[in-house]
């Protein structure tokens, strides 16, 4: 079980929650279960969400494992120049 923190506008799509607990071993499973439990999040997940695991931001490595007790933070996928 990992605790996931959602950024502001994402939280609004998850019933106003800023934190949710999910049983997930990696980012892929996390996204799948988030979409199942909060269908409003699915379009945003499809569009792209970044996941910060203990401060390191992952944008595309959906196979990245979520270590027990790690800080998991969802962030918008940003543009660079």
């Amino acid at each position: 079980m990992v605790e996931v923190t959602l950024w502001g506008s994402l939280g609004a799509l998850a019933g106003g929650k800023s934190k949710v607990e999910i049983e997930a071993k990696d980012i892929r499973e996390l996204f799948r279960k988030l979409a199942e439990q909060y269908p409003g999040l699915e379009p945003l997940i499809e569009k792209g969400i970044a996941v910060a695991i203990d401060g390191t931001i992952y944008r595309d490595t959906w196979s990245k494992e979520l270590p027990e007790g790690a800080e998991i933070f969802l962030l918008p996928r940003l543009a660079g120049g």
């Binding site: 923190t5 950024w7 910060a52 203990d54 401060g55 390191t56 931001i57 800080e71 933070f73 962030l75």
Partner: peptide, 9 residues
């Protein structure tokens, strides 16, 4: 804790 959310490494 960064101002945008996560804790820094």
């Amino acid at each position: 804790r960064s101002s945008y959310g996560p804790v820094y490494g």
